[in-house]
């Protein structure tokens, strides 16, 4: 069973602001204004999935319903969050940050750090589920917690897994065996 440890770095618990929260709020303001601009924009989804290497370079990113001009902010915010908090964290130990109804769950796996951002229904519990699926799929593809090199070796297959797990901002598949079959275009065993 996954070892889970939840840190509340920011949050709805705290009225007080630390420097970090300010930048987070800035992002959220950006985001709120985005909501006004496009009324079709949906809440309630996985806003972003992001993989970065140890130096903070992005390996894979998937944004859903986040306007292009805000992505840069998110990217640098997440990488900084990781740089500040992920040092010495064990593989798959989960860290949480949240503000109002936006949640971030992040972790390390081998040399790669993984961030998942969600909103409303995708709260810290749902996101921990999402990240658990992602980490187990990555481990499955790589055979172990990957080094950056190994991750890049398996890049194509990891992209496929991600495609099966998160579909346009919604969690779709959760079982790694099923995912393993689906990315090879094999029907799931239960069928």
């Amino acid at each position: 069973m996954i070892m889970l440890k939840t840190y509340f770095v920011l949050g709805n618990l705290f009225e007080a602001c630390v420097g970090e929260i300010y930048s987070f709020q800035k992002l959220l303001r950006l985001e709120d204004s985005g909501t006004d601009r496009t009324s079709t924009r949906r809440e309630n989804m996985i806003l972003a999935v992001l993989f970065a290497n140890a130096e903070g370079n992005i390996l894979i990113e998937r944004f859903h319903g986040v306007p292009a001009e805000e992505r840069l902010h998110w990217r640098s915010f997440l990488v900084k969050l990781g740089a500040d908090n992920l040092k010495g964290v064990k593989n798959e130990e989960l860290l949480v940050a949240c503000h109002k109804s936006v949640y971030i769950v992040y972790t390390v796996l081998g040399d790669v750090s993984i961030y998942v951002v969600g909103k409303d229904e995708y709260d810290e519990l749902a996101l921990s589920e999402v990240i658990f699926v992602i980490t187990s799929a990555v481990k499955d593809v790589c055979g172990k917690p990957p080094s950056e090199r190994l991750f890049l070796d398996k890049y194509g297959r990891i992209c496929l897994c991600l495609d099966e797990i998160v579909w346009k901002g919604y969690l779709e598949n959760t079982e790694k065996d099923r995912i393993k079959r689906l990315i090879r275009l094999k029907p799931p065993t239960e069928f």
């Binding site: 040399d111 950056e148 090199r149 890049l152 398996k154 890049y155």
Partner: peptide
Amino acid sequence: MAQPLVKKDDDRDEEAEYSPFL
């Protein structure tokens, strides 16, 4: 199915040295 672009090498040191997308 995506195949590894470079032959898999179990030697970790060497593995970490360069990226297949270098």
